[in-house]
Design a protein around this nucleic acid. Structure first.
Length: 659
DNA sequence: GAGCACTGC
């Protein structure tokens, strides 16, 4: 569970003991409390236990405490993993309060950039990605006696890999006569048998939730225009229902949401007598101060209408939602491993996702959900969302598994295996980067082991490790950091021309990477001044993250004793490093003025957001291909044909760039 | 001359 279980406001009275007693009272009233004894008994008796609990059962905060209080931690650490940072942080804070201890002592959390634990920490809340990182250093997870994998139904790529890693650790520890490790998997209702079977027929414990009943209404006819249908539904609700009952509408993306918000405001003002609707858009790229608007209390006599992406399914919980309108659509990234092509597509949600959306109407009282599709249509939806591990590039995961001495990745005990083609593709990519070698079977190289230490796409790790040969790690660290966060450029659609003109001064004719370097240098020279960022249309939030990433990467470099040197104003060494990581993503200018990729001779174009748009360099490297109206290359770097040959002679033997 | 679901190390 996320921040849902934390009471709206802890009443911290003057009497601390009073407050503590109240907390203990709350603990005892949770639906999980009567099951305490059975839970402890099951965990004592079995190596693995599955806990199925709906929202509000209290499992995330209570189960780790029960196991600890019963002494099952055996003086080692209980890890509780979460897919999201905020959840790990807020839940650990709550548990520390309940245990009446300071955060970081008995109870702590560990997420990227932040480790609030100590030697005395026994209950450790962490992101699943964090535990996976630890497993690279210690595949047997020896410091833990119990690993609790929470929100397992979300099937993030990290959780899925952890399933296999923790299960293997359990078996190997038993084989080696080491202390045993217990596994507790906590999930919402879907796929119970699947989980139990995978964990050696683990017993399943069912918990009651604290969800209020929700009335679900389907469309009578299939809708051709869900955007229009959502507006009609909203105003039907608005006409007949008392104000104060707020509405949450699920749509697919920024543009659609902004247009819906505008329509709602226009209709409310011009058509309805009293414009008593407060409309809030909500999507992740919305600046944080605008996001906070959804949490502000609705003025007297008004109705709040939140128009959101799937961010409101799990990551953000809004109080007071009584009605949910579900378009049944979601924007999903579709990745094609063969072409390396990314595209965002609007697709149908799965049944579990529709259920999750519906649940948002019944958090505090009974609610109503309007589904903008028919019941027959709903029956055709797939049961669950395809696990992430089956729909993305696996290079990074394969490298991590190999660093844990798992050489046969295709044969690894995944709960749901990725396709053999996707694993093969990942191994081929790692081989091109010299991270693995192919003998009788694939084997990690010393370079590959070094690469695995970086929390990055393997291509970017390769760029970093190449920098020592070109004496430009200082610059490479900056570029890699900026590339691995969301865009540091902030371009509001109505001020596009102005933003482009202001940022002209940063542009390098060598491409986007060097332009990013110039921007970061300028940002540092003004000490991250916020006004400067606003004037130059630089996204402060993402720039700060890039700075933190850089600090972390620098630390890893120092641990590997890589010399952090600067190449000054010369960009050639930098671009040669980039070539070492991205030579397989190169494109060549043709006589007709178009570009083709060297890997598959696919016709591609320079994306208009690139500083190289309207330039015609002979050879470029690109970071990604996006298919929209055309196939576009994004984030480009100008290179020399000779560098491609020098970097990967075998790869280019038959591709003949420039010859 | 264009389009940005959502997480995470």
């Amino acid at each position: 569970m996320t921040n849902d279980q934390i009471p709206k406001k802890m009443r911290l009275g003057s009497n601390e003991e009073d407050c503590y007693q109240r907390l203990q009272q709350q603990r005892r009233s949770l639906p999980i409390h009567p099951v305490r004894g059975r839970l402890i008994h099951e965990v004592q008796r079995h190596n693995s236990v599955i806990v199925i609990g709906e929202t509000g059962s209290g499992k995330t905060t209570q189960i780790p405490q029960y196991l600890y209080e019963a002494g099952l931690h055996r003086n080692a650490v209980i890890a509780v993993t979460q897919p999201r940072r905020v959840a790990a942080i807020t839940i650990s804070k709550r548990v520390a309060q309940e245990k009446k201890t300071e955060l970081g002592h008995l109870v702590g959390y560990c997420v990227r950039f932040e480790d609030v634990t100590s030697d005395s920490t026994k209950l450790k809340y962490m992101t699943d990605g964090m535990l996976l990182r630890e497993a690279i250093l210690d595949p047997l997870l020896k410091r833990y006696s119990i690993v609790i994998l929470d929100e397992a139904h979300e099937r993030t790529i990290h959780t899925d890999v952890l399933f296999g890693v923790v299960k293997a650790a359990q078996r190997q520890r038993a084989e080696q006569g080491l202390k045993q490790i217990k596994i507790v998997v906590m999930s919402a209702t879907m796929d119970v048998d699947h989980f139990s079977k995978y964990f050696n027929n683990a017993p399943v414990l069912y918990l009651e939730g604290r969800q209020y009943p929700i009335q679900v209404y389907y469309s009578v006819e299939p809708q051709t225009d869900y955007l229009f249908a959502s507006l009609v539904t909203l105003f039907q609700i608005h006409k007949k229902e008392p104000a104060q009952k707020d509405v949450l509408i699920f749509l697919t993306g920024q543009e659609e949401i902004e247009s819906a918000v505008k329509s709602i405001r226009d209709i409310a003002r011009e058509v309805m007598r009293a414009p008593n609707i407060v409309v809030c858009p909500l999507y992740s790229s919305l600046p944080s101060f605008s996001q906070l608007r959804v949490f502000q209390p609705t003025p007297e006599g008004c109705r709040k209408v939140v128009v959101a992406t799937n961010i409101a399914e799990t990551s953000v919980t809004i109080q007071g939602i009584k009605f949910v309108i579900d378009s049944g659509m979601v924007k999903a990234k579709v990745y094609n491993p063969n072409s390396g092509l990314d595209l965002l597509k609007v697709v149908r949600v799965a049944k579990d996702q529709a259920l999750q959306r519906t649940g948002r109407a019944g958090r505090e009282s009974p609610g109503i959900c309007y589904r903008l599709y028919t019941e027959n249509e709903f029956e055709t939806f797939s049961n669950t969302t395809v696990p992430e591990i089956q729909r993305c590039n696996l290079a990074s995961v394969v490298l991590q598994l190999m660093a844990m001495h798992i050489t046969d990745v295709a044969g690894f005990d995944f709960m749901d295996k990725p396709s053999p083609e996707a694993v093969k593709k990942a191994l081929e990519q790692l081989e091109l980067l010299s991270a693995v070698e192919k003998g009788e079977r694939y084997k990690l190289t010393p370079l590959g082991r070094q690469m695995a230490a970086f929390p990055l796409d393997p291509r970017l790790s390769k760029v970093i490790l190449t920098a020592k040969d070109f004496h430009c790690l200082e610059e490479i660290l900056t570029i890699v950091s900026v590339l691995s966060v969301d865009s540091v450029l902030y371009t509001p659609p109505n001020k596009r021309e102005h933003a482009m003109a202001v940022r002209q001064k940063f542009i390098s004719s060598d491409g986007d990477h060097i332009t990013f370097l110039n921007i970061y240098r300028a940002y540092k020279s003004v000490n991250g001044n916020k006004q400067w960022c606003n004037e130059n249309f630089i996204d402060v939030r993402n720039m700060k993250t890039a700075q933190e990433v850089r600090r972390q990467l620098k630390e890893i470099c120092e641990r590997q004793e890589l010399p952090i040197q600067s190449c000054g104003r010369d960009t050639v060494p930098i671009r040669k490093c980039l070539t070492a990581g991205y030579f397989m993503s190169a494109a060549e200018l043709q006589r007709e003025g178009e570009y083709v990729t060297l890997s598959t001779r696919k016709v591609v174009s320079i994306h208009p957001s690139s500083v190289l748009f309207r330039c015609r360099p002979g050879y470029v490297l690109y970071n990604e291909l996006t298919q929209t109206s055309k196939c576009y290359m994004r984030d480009l770097c100008v290179v020399d044909a000779d560098w491609l040959y020098e970097t990967a002679p075998n790869y280019f033997r038959n591709k003949k760039p420039g010859r």
